[in-house]
Amino acid sequence: MSETESYPELGQVVQILQGREAGQFAIVIEKVDSRFVLLADGDRRKYDRPKKKNIQHITFTRFVSPEVQRSLLETGRVTNGKLRYAINKFVEEHLTDLKKGDQLDGERRCN
């Protein structure tokens, strides 16, 4: 497994697996060290008060927000609105894919 596959990028959407926020999506806003990242969603978890999370307690998605990543790399910060926008964009695309997948699975079972 390469470094990029085993460690999330800045601006990458992740799903939290453990803890009080399990099941929710957040965005990587900083890499702390080889085991921890800082996560924020712009809503309950603002940029100013990110959650430090062990990377073993999150699952990575393939979605990296170019807007969030660019903002973090250029200015070192990102607005909460941009975080909310990126997560909403991901959820809309992801849920659409899931519905299509569920429909296809259902058709296969009927045959």
Score class of each variant (00 low, 15 high):
Met1His: 08
Ser2Phe: 01
Ser6Leu: 09
Pro8Phe: 06
Leu10Pro: 00
Gly11Met: 02
Gln12Glu: 07
Val14Ile: 13
Leu17Arg: 12
Leu17Gly: 04
Gln18Glu: 15
Gly19Tyr: 14
Gly23Pro: 02
Gln24His: 10
Gln24Asn: 13
Ala26Trp: 01
Val28Asn: 00
Glu30Phe: 04
Val32His: 04
Val32Cys: 05
Phe36Gly: 01
Leu38Gly: 01
Ala40Ile: 07
Gly42Ala: 05
Gly42Pro: 04
Arg45Ser: 08
Tyr47Lys: 09
Lys52Trp: 08
Lys53Asp: 02
Lys53Trp: 06
Ile55Gln: 06
Gln56Leu: 10
His57Asp: 13
Ile58Lys: 00
Ile58Val: 10
Arg62Asp: 06
Arg62Trp: 02
Val64Ala: 02
Ser65Leu: 02
Pro66Phe: 05
Val68Cys: 00
Val68Arg: 01
Gln69Met: 11
Gln69Cys: 12
Arg70His: 06
Ser71Tyr: 03
Gly76Val: 09
Arg77Asp: 05
Val78Cys: 12
Asn80Tyr: 03
Gly81Ile: 04
Lys82Trp: 00
Leu83Asn: 02
Arg84Gly: 11
Tyr85Ser: 09
Ala86Met: 04
Ala86Glu: 01
Ile87Ala: 09
Asn88Ala: 14
Lys89His: 15
Phe90Glu: 06
Phe90Arg: 12
Phe90Gln: 09
Phe90Val: 15
Glu92Arg: 15
Glu92Cys: 11
Glu93Gln: 15
Glu93Asp: 15
His94Asn: 12
Lys99Phe: 10
Lys100Asp: 14
Gly101Ala: 14
Asp102Thr: 10
Leu104His: 09
Asp105Gln: 10
Asp105Phe: 10
Glu107Pro: 00
Asn111Gln: 12
